Simulated assay, not measured.
Amino acid sequence: MSFIQVRNLSHGYTAGGLFSKRHRIQVLSSLDLDLHEGQSLGLLGGSGSGKSTLARLLMGLENADQGSIAFNGQTLQGLDPKFLQRVQMVFQDALSAFNPQRTIGWSIAEPLRHLSDMPVDACKARVEQLLVQVKLLASDHDKLPSQLSGGQLQRAGIARAMAVGPQLIILDEALSNLDRVLQVQILDLLADVRRTSGTGFLLITHDLSLVQRFCQRVVVLAEGRLVEDREVTPHMRFEHPAARTLQAAVLPAMPKAPVALALA
């Protein structure tokens, strides 16, 4: 069932400066998209295709020039706390997503402080539960971001996104800075989360192999337009030239079996 509906969405940015003529760069054009509850959807596209712009619009971080985004039939306008209880995001740069002067536990509890009325003791217990769920240690609660590795920080970011039990977690190139083994480990972890909690995911990436491992459906963006929308299958073939280019990219093979996630 569709719970987020994107209709006729268009957006662009003004380029140019003091000594050059200012002009409008169109990034998204008349885009329609449905996100289904409990589904892992891959949003595939090359650099400049509009993937991250769409993510910011979905989160309400920017307002579209044209079109609408509706959540369960209600049109969204900017940052909506009720919407943020249902949709969270994990960013590409895990280190910059954390306050370096605050503990990991404090950061993971941030959505709980702002989007729930959970007491302090219950918040701490919830954070420790989340840390263990993403294969970290409960004692990592008191560590600073500089004391964790890149892969551990990304898992902590996922824990923070999971804190309020959202219906959807957006992964905006959240795995692109990790090596292949860590990518696989985290995808397998998220697949377990989806099976146990029913949480859906929007995996934004340029890497088709990540989509094939994790997603049930894939859409492809090219020059701001949706050019493919299909079920993920082992032998699927895209029709649009831009999608075929992404499919032809040579990337390291994904292991077929789940890979154990180390605590380090």
Rank of each mutant, 00 (worst) to 15 (best):
G46P: 03
S47M: 12
S47I: 12
G50N: 11
S52N: 06
T53D: 02
L54S: 09
L54M: 10
L54Q: 04
A55F: 00
A55W: 00
L57H: 02
L57I: 07
L58Q: 04
L58C: 07
M59L: 15
G60K: 10
G60Q: 08
G60T: 02
E62M: 12
N63G: 12
D65N: 06
G67L: 05
S68I: 03
S68A: 14
A70H: 03
F71W: 15
N72W: 03
G73N: 08
Q74R: 15
G78N: 05
G78S: 03
L79H: 03
V87L: 04
Q88Y: 02
Q88M: 05
M89P: 01
F91H: 12
D93L: 11
D93N: 15
A94R: 05
S96C: 03
F98V: 12
F98P: 06
N99E: 08
Q101H: 13
Q101S: 14
R102V: 00
R102E: 12
I104M: 11
I104S: 07
G105R: 06
G105L: 08
S107A: 15
S107R: 03
I108C: 03
I108Y: 09
A109Q: 08
A109M: 06
E110G: 05
E110D: 14
P111I: 13
R113T: 03
H114T: 14
L115I: 12
L115Q: 08
D117C: 05
D117T: 14
D121V: 13
K124Q: 15
K124R: 15
K124T: 13
V127E: 11
E128I: 14
Q129E: 15
L130D: 04
L130M: 05
Q133W: 01
V134T: 07
K135G: 00
L137C: 11
L137K: 14
H141P: 01
K143R: 15
K143Q: 13
P145C: 09
S146L: 05
S146M: 09
Q147C: 06
L148Y: 11
L148C: 12
S149G: 07
G150S: 13
G150V: 14
L153A: 10
Q154K: 08
A156F: 02
A156N: 06
A159L: 04
R160G: 06
R160C: 07
R160T: 09
A161F: 08
V164N: 11
P166V: 07
L168W: 00
I170T: 06
I170C: 05
D172N: 10
D172H: 11
E173K: 08
A174R: 05
S176I: 08
S176G: 03
N177W: 00
N177I: 00
L178A: 12
L178K: 10
R180C: 07
L182V: 12
Q183V: 11
Q185G: 06
I186V: 14
I186L: 04
